[in-house]
């Protein structure tokens, strides 16, 4: 399995990867260092790390004093985690049905479900808003969870059904002969085997949901259901922007995504390389 790669090629590959990593992390790095600096220092020398003279926690103080920041944070967490849960649950179930059962219109259903990958859900914003108003769901976290679940499902079904097809038929059949229900087969035999694929889907769905500004602004702008991305916008004014606070809020918002990513990453790497290395 472990084939030896010539040293020169390994060095070249690492140089490219390290360069790419530096470029990608640079904006994040700038955000984080500047969030610890005074306003004047941010504008005077934006690329300089905080020194004892320029070190200032005023951004964090503002953000945390802003009262509801913790609430925004919780809203984002609740919305993201619930949406992810439903995307994974329903996505995996639909994928199982599509890959396991032969029924009329199987292919057609699969194509219909995959269509959502190509059509952005924002095109339906007006209709979604009317729907939420009619359902009395405006300014609730439920509205966001519903929209994000719908948004995440197409990709989840598409990726997971490919992986489901690879789960051994014999294993599922052994379960059937031993008297396991289809639900037990799905939850105890199939799901654990496609964990890497689930983690991949989770990370790919997680980031657009956490970062989304559009739907919170339209469907749930009320104070008590604001997400953190929307909440941070209060520091950006039309004329004056509180950069300390914006940078501090953004730095804080990175943390949960990072934590969730670390949880999924071990599985994620296996998912991405599945098939590449047999």
């Amino acid at each position: 399995m472990a084939t030896r790669i010539p040293l020169s090629r390994s060095i070249a590959a690492h140089t490219v990867l390290i360069a790419y990593t530096l470029i990608s992390l640079f904006p994040v790095f700038v955000i984080v260092i500047n969030s610890f600096k005074s306003r004047k220092a941010i504008f005077a020398a934006p690329l300089e790390p905080p020194t004892p003279t320029t070190f200032d926690l005023v951004g964090y103080a503002t953000v945390l004093k802003q009262g509801d920041f913790f609430q925004y944070f919780m809203n984002s967490m609740i919305v993201t985690c619930s949406s992810l849960f439903f995307v994974l649950l329903f996505g995996a179930m639909a994928a199982f049905a599509l890959s396991e059962y032969r029924f009329k219109a199987n292919t057609l259903t699969g194509l219909y479900l995959a269509l959502g990958i190509m059509i952005p859900i924002r095109l339906g914003t007006v209709a979604i808003l009317q729907l939420m108003v009619a359902g009395g769901l405006v300014n609730t976290r439920t509205a966001l969870v519903l929209v994000y679940t719908a948004q995440g499902l197409p990709l989840a079904v598409f990726i997971l059904s490919e992986f489901m097809k690879q789960v051994s038929d014999d294993l599922k059949n052994a379960g059937r002969i031993d008297g396991l229900s289809e639900y037990r087969i799905f939850f105890t035999l199939v799901l654990p085997l496609i964990r890497p694929a689930m983690a991949t889907v989770a990370v790919f769905s997680l980031i657009p949901i956490w970062n989304d500004l559009w739907f919170p602004l339209i469907l749930a702008p009320a104070e008590e259901v604001k997400t953190i991305t929307l909440g941070s916008q209060i520091f950006i004014g039309q004329f004056v922007t509180n950069w300390n606070a914006v940078l501090a809020a953004l730095s804080l918002a990175i943390i949960p995504v990072l934590v969730l990513y670390l949880i999924f990453s071990r599985q994620l790497i296996r998912g991405i390389t599945a098939g590449a290395v047999k």
Binding site: D170, N173, A174, T188, P192
Partner: peptide, 14 residues
Amino acid sequence: ELAMVFQSYALYPH
């Protein structure tokens, strides 16, 4: 009331 043995063993991994 039958039992089956598969080519790929099909043991429950967990």
